[in-house]
Amino acid sequence: MPPLLSVESLTARINEEGTNQGESSHGESSQGKSSKEILRGVSLEIPHGEVHAVMGPNGSGKSTLASILAGREGFEVEGRVLFEGEDLLALDPEERAHKGLFLAFQYPVSLPGVQGMRFLSEALDAQARARGEKEEDRIAQVKRVRALSRELGVEESMLKRSVNDGFSGGEKKRNEMLQLAALQPKLAILDETDSGLDIDAIRAVAEGLERMRDKKRSFLVITHYQRLLEHIEPDRVHVLLNGRIVRSGDKQLCAQLEAEGYAPLLKEHGGQEAAVQP
């Protein structure tokens, strides 16, 4: 059986009018006048049922990796990404979702006028249709989503409000978790889901993820900090520096990073240009 996700020598340049969001566009890397290389040959394999963490300083390309996997446009991409053996990069974002890929956004946009439950129903029905499955009965669907929201500590009133509209940072992240739990993807990519959350919220998110963990479902957790990984134990940890994975290891690696920071790795990999380019 092929791994769930296989990323091979992935490079990405951002086009001048690229629309990428997140760390790279706020920082230095997208400010260049010509196209700027953000990922410089990333290779990564995630087998079924494993939790992988990608850590790295600001501007190292973490969010770009997540964006490209989810299908955001605005990048020149080379290399190969296989999802269950299938060419992921050839698929539209919605087709990737149909195959079982989910991205919890770092900065989820708000959708004024689109009610939370309606949004989830549209997504669930679209995925069922695309997979040739029967659409879930509406009443059963609402019941199931309500039960999930209770489990995750998401106020049920959130389902009646417009998606992310006027939500606090924490509410937005919890809402991403609720969508993740409802959609039951094969691979969930969490793009800095822990940033902006207080300790209790991080624990709630981690507990939610832990409950979803099984032999088939995999997670790619992108984070700055160790905190989330204290609650959800990763099988592998990768360090992304300057667009390359410079070290991979088990959970000990994240303890080491927490203790020493990225500085020794930056030094080792000539990374002055990596994160702190002016």
């Binding site: 629309t19 969001q21 989810a70 299908g71 955001r72 446009e73 539209d92 974002p93 919605e94 990737r96 979702a97 149909h98 989910f102 991205l103 956004f105 989820p108 946009v109 959708l111 949004f119 549209e122 997504a123 679209a126 995925q127 695309a130 969508q179 959609l183």
Partner: peptide, 19 residues
């Protein structure tokens, strides 16, 4: 139309025209 909003819906499986 806001491309970010479209991407958000599409990333949940909603096809572009429907989004």
């Amino acid at each position: 139309l806001d491309e970010e909003q479209l991407l958000y819906l599409r990333s949940r499986g909603v096809v572009r025209a429907r989004a």
